[in-house]
Structures are given as structure tokens and as C-alpha cells.
Design a binder for these strands. Structure first.
Lengths: 344, 344
DNA sequence: CACGACTATGTAAGCGCTTACATTACGAAG
DNA sequence: CTTCGTAATGTAAGCGCTTACATAGTCGTG
């Protein structure tokens, strides 16, 4: 009647289970579980027997079984578009580090490699307790469903909505400061290169660009649409050289764009910042290696990732979502591409 | 007697289960499972009822339960030291992309953020079917235990051992070619900067450096020990400027080292490659932005990651580990820091 | 019109853990 | 020598799925 060891078979070649360990050690599975979890007290002698058995059998617990029993995955999901450039990598590092401290595994999904992002997210939701999504892409409607199903979600670099919390780095004010800095060098034909509609980050940077002009009673130009890629940077630079645009300063949506533009212009004989000032955003490694050094804005990306992991954990813990975006301060990094003189 | 719905409670506020969906749709849980898995045929009408119920309840399956039932985690683990620089990020992207194609989730562990790497790996093993470890660090003994427990393991950029398979990019021959290239520019005091003992990758690059000298009947120098960081690069450059070393060429273990050295020397007025040639390894983004462009070696990092994911999947599928390291070809990228004339 | 072959669905037995509750063993206290 | 409290361990009931096997329907044939 009483089933004995549902999963006996002492030596199931492929896998020791808690049952085989218990058998081997001559104790019950409850005891094995207890020594492995370390929460309850177990007699020292018993504990040793169990540990020995674990060792001898090469026992590796099945996480799924534990998750099922404790009703928690003990894992956080992170959805990023991709990982090229230091930005996402740094974000991920911050996220992972904090998750590790919180004893949460991290399951990563990169959407650029997927054909069906919604499916990927749905699938992810299946194996984590909460999900952080990088928000430059539109938030897939599926996430709303997740919410209904009570999986906490936080958007990174996005805006809060429908109970989905957001964390972000400050963009508007720093952009205003950066643009102002350039304008105060006397530049009057400053162009913004990037697509404000590609996400809240860029939108706010452009807003800062506008604000800086407004502050000085200058009129700002329409943004020059470009994606955040070297290719688009080079293409724009070419158009600029061809005379399609007129500018004495370029405020680029990120460093990659700024750098590719700068190099292309320089190779064509233009002087940066003499003929044209160029500034970027992100402070990637290259920014300090090129000549002139690229003036840019450094974001606390690592901290942003950590914050996301933190919030996820607290939301899982039952806290309710904040309705305001949590902003982390950024910092203007002035080098010489903006027209400042080299410091010596 | 017959337990009816162990997890009934139609509206367990927090979570719809397969039972509530079945109830709601007026079918059995088996049917729900069938339409969700899509493997078996289900009458179209029934399928719609189920789908509707899923939608209405906002049902998200519990991955752990499925994993337990199918006895597979459907996830691959990846253990990397960190993510700074493009190398690991690219590797991860390759891994993730392939894993996605294979319908495997990826659980990431970064060891630099951990105090107890062994514990992290042990914990990871709990929730994945197989693990890929980046091998520049010594392979933790725990992994051997994993092997015993039949979790496939592959080492990336390491060497095969005890049934642990390895995948790597070719280093020796390309290093020999690169060093040869520099020597053939007539340089006679070429130094290798990097620590051959820090892992098989660097060891092989140094071996290539030695081989190139041997090929030409020249005598090679001892390596200048340095870690792969900007800091160590700058420090070495300083010592070089101070006259502690004498060299007309530098073969650096990676680009980061090469770039920081190059910039430091240039800032001190040295001419590269006039006074001294410098070459690196990795072909990071900065390598093509600096002037002179950095001559370096490009590794198929993305493919390496994909290969690791592939092998993991096949090992999980029952294939037995290969005993030879699988090598991916690398490619010499000649720019001008080696002394070549700019192509115009 | 009965029968066998399918089809569509339901039943129920696990998967390998955690943990509330029950049981046993042992001393201390009365 | 009982009686209890306490510490150590065992028992067994899930956790939410998948899937082999059993059970109804449905038809096409002879």
C-alpha cells in the first residue's frame, strides 16, 4: 500500500536522487533534504553520513523539483536586445552581480537573435519569478498578460505604465547640459543625430537638446534620423560631406554613432572640433582612445542593472510596483571633441 | 478516494494552473497540456475553448513542473568570468543565439562577481542540463563531480581533459603568422606582453611568438608578464618609457593591452609604428578607430559561442564527448600599427 | 446493421523535491 | 519509576505538469 521509494533503483546510472542518497545513508529523504538545505538542525553524525552519501553518489539535486515544491523559481529573467557595445554588457553585469547576491539565477534572452520575441518572453516567464525588460523596444503586449498572472516586470530605460515599474538613467537634464555646453562654445548650427522615436532614452536626449536651445533663445533643428549603428553614422557623415547637411556641431544619440561619424569626417580631411564639434553618449572605451577624445555622457549602467535586479526581488517579495520611474544620475565627461582645449 | 483537483481553487488569485484552465474550459488537464504542447491532435473546437480559457485566466505554465515531468531542464548553463570588452559579450551572443534555435534557455553565471565560484557552479548544475565554462580559469574540481553525475560539460577556450570536451579558437598558428609578419618588417627586438600561464589561449599565442622566432633562427625574449587590462598596459608603457625595456615591436596578448600601451606611448611622443610596432589580438571595435589602425587577429568568437551551445545540446542528446579540442580558424587583420603602409 | 479501426479525450501515475505533522528516543523532573 | 518536554527523524501529502493507457464516440465496410 505504502509506496516505498517511488524513485528507488539505487543506481539509476544517470542520476542519483534524494531517494538514492537517503537509502545510501540509511536515513529518510526528509533528513537528506534537511542537511542539504541547512535550515533545520540535524545530528552531526547523521549529517556526515548524508554528506558522504551525496559525495559517493555524485548527487546533484534537481532544481525543478525544488522549485515546484517551494513554488518559486529563484530566478530572474532579463530581456535585452543584444550585447554589442559596452552598454548592455555592463548592464547585464550589474544585474547578474546583484541577482547573485540575492541568490537568484539569471536567465537571459536576447531579442535580436529571435524571430519571435513574444514567444521568447512567454517562454521565459515560464521559468522565472520576475522579468526585467530593456525598454527601448515597445513593450510587447504579452507582458501585460504576465502582469495579470502576477509576474513582476520592470522596464529598464523605459517609462512606467500600467503597474509596470521602470528604472532609468537620467537623460533630459544631462542632455540639456551637454547641448548647452556645445552651444556655449559658440556653435550655432548644432544637429541632433538619432531617432527620438526609437525609445524614451533618445527621446529625452533630444528633448534636452531642444531645451538647451530654448534656454538660449536659439532655434533648434529637426533631428537627423539614424539608428545607433556605425553604418548609419558613416552614411550620415557621407551625406554631410556631400553637403546635404550644414552643421558646426553634432550631438549624437550615442558614442558609436559619434565615433563613426568623427572618423569618417576626419578621413575626409575635416578637422574635429575645428570645423565641427562632435559629442556622443555612453562613454564607451573607444571614446577616450580616439583623438580628439570624445566628449560624452557617462551613465551608471552597472548600477542600473543592479537596481533592476533589486526591484525585481522586492516585487517578488510582495512589494507593490512604484508608479514613478527611478532615475539614476549621469555625468558629463568633457574631453576635446566638443571644442574644449586639451587639458595639459 | 479519487482526489479530484489537487490544485483546484479556480481562482487562486496569484496563479492559474493547468487545473483551473481545464475547469474553465470544461476539459481535462491532459487536453490542456496537449493543446499547449501542440504535439498531439486536438479537435479544433476544443483547442479554441482551451485557448480562450488560457487567455481569460492569464495562464502562464510553471516551467519547473514541466521540467520535472519531462526530466529535462531545457536550459544550458554558461559560466564566464565577466563581460567587459567585446570578447565575452560576443561569445555570449553566439551562445544565446544558438541555444535559442535549439529551444534552450540560457542561465548565465559570471564568476568575477562571486565569492564562491564552486558554489555558483554547483547551484547552476541544479537547473540546467549541461554547462559550458570559459576555461581561462582553472576548471573547478567540482565540475568533475558533475561529470560523474552525467551533466555534460564543455570548456570554451580550454583544453579537453577527463572526458570534458573543449572548443577553442586557433591561436598558435595565427600567433606564429602575426609574429612572423612583424619580424618580416625587420624588427628584431620584439617583446611579447602577456602572461602565458594565465590560460591556454595566451600560452599558445606566446608559443606562436616563439615559433616565429625559431622559424627565422632568431632568439625570442621572455614574456613581459601583464594581465589583460588597460591598467597593466599603461604600467608597462611607463616602464618602457623609463627605459626598463628595450623594444622595436610589441606583440600584446590582447587589444586592450595593445591599445593602452599604444596611446600611452603616443602621448609621450613616441611614433607608432615608426619607433615601435604594436600588434594586438581580438580585433575590438577600437582597433579600427585608433590611428594608426591596430594590426590584430580576429577570432570567430560568435561562432565559438554557438559551437559550445551546439556541442552541449548534442552531448545532452547522448553523444559522447570528443577527446580532441575543436578549433575554429582565426584571421590576421593587418592595419598599420605593425609597420605596414596605409592602403590608399 | 454489426464490427473493427480510428480519433478525440479522460484517468491516473509519476517526476524529485519540501515541509507540516506524527513518531520515537532520551533525559530531567516530580 | 512515571510523566513530559525536547530533540531528532520519519511519513506522506502535495507542488503543476506530461504521457502511457484506458475509454468513448464515429465511421466506413462487408
Amino acid at each position: 500500500m505504502a509506496k516505498q521509494h517511488p524513485a528507488s533503483a539505487e543506481a539509476r546510472s544517470a542520476g542519483a536522487t534524494i531517494y538514492s542518497v537517503a537509502d545510501h545513508a540509511g536515513v529518510s529523504i526528509a533528513t537528506v533534504s534537511r542537511v542539504l538545505q541547512g535550515a533545520t538542525v540535524v545530528a552531526e553524525a547523521t549529517r556526515q553520513k548524508v554528506l558522504t552519501a551525496v559525495e559517493e553518489l555524485g548527487y546533484v539535486p534537481t532544481g525543478a523539483a525544488r522549485s515546484l515544491a517551494v513554488r518559486h523559481h529563484e530566478a530572474h529573467g532579463l530581456v535585452l536586445p543584444e550585447l554589442s557595445g559596452p552598454y548592455y554588457a555592463e548592464l547585464l553585469m550589474g544585474f547578474e552581480a546583484r541577482a547573485a547576491e540575492l541568490a537568484q539565477s539569471v536567465v537571459l534572452v536576447l531579442t535580436n537573435s529571435r524571430t519571435d520575441m513574444a514567444a521568447a518572453v512567454r517562454q521565459l516567464a515560464t521559468r522565472v519569478d520576475a522579468i526585467a525588460v530593456f525598454g527601448s523596444a515597445a513593450i510587447p503586449a504579452d507582458l501585460v498578460r504576465l502582469l495579470r498572472a502576477k509576474k513582476p516586470v520592470v522596464v529598464i530605460a523605459g517609462e512606467p505604465q500600467d503597474g509596470i515599474e521602470a528604472v532609468a538613467a537620467e537623460n533630459l537634464e544631462s542632455a540639456r547640459e551637454l547641448a548647452g555646453h556645445v552651444l556655449d562654445h559658440g556653435r550655432r548650427r548644432a544637429l541632433f543625430v538619432g531617432d527620438p522615436d526609437s525609445g524614451p532614452d533618445i527621446r529625452n536626449r533630444y528633448a534636452g537638446y531642444l531645451a538647451a536651445h530654448r534656454d538660449r533663445g536659439l532655434k533648434a533643428a529637426e533631428p537627423v534620423l539614424a539608428r545607433l549603428s556605425e553604418a548609419d553614422g558613416t552614411a550620415f557623415a557621407q551625406r554631410l560631406l556631400a553637403g546635404e547637411h550644414e552643421a558646426d556641431a553634432l550631438m549624437c544619440a550615442n558614442d558609436e554613432l559619434a565615433l563613426s561619424i568623427m572618423t569618417t569626417l576626419q578621413d575626409a580631411g575635416r578637422d574635429v572640433p575645428g570645423d565641427i564639434a562632435i559629442v556622443g553618449w555612453d562613454d564607451v572605451m573607444t571614446a577616450r582612445y580616439v583623438r580628439p577624445g570624445l566628449t560624452t555622457v557617462r551613465q551608471p549602467v552597472h548600477e542600473l542593472g543592479a537596481l533592476a535586479a533589486d526591484r525585481l526581488h522586492e516585487l517578488v517579495g510582495g512589494e507593490s510596483p512604484r508608479t514613478y520611474a527611478q532615475m539614476l544620475p549621469t555625468r558629463l565627461v568633457v574631453r576635446t571633441s566638443c571644442g574644449c582645449l586639451p587639458v595639459t
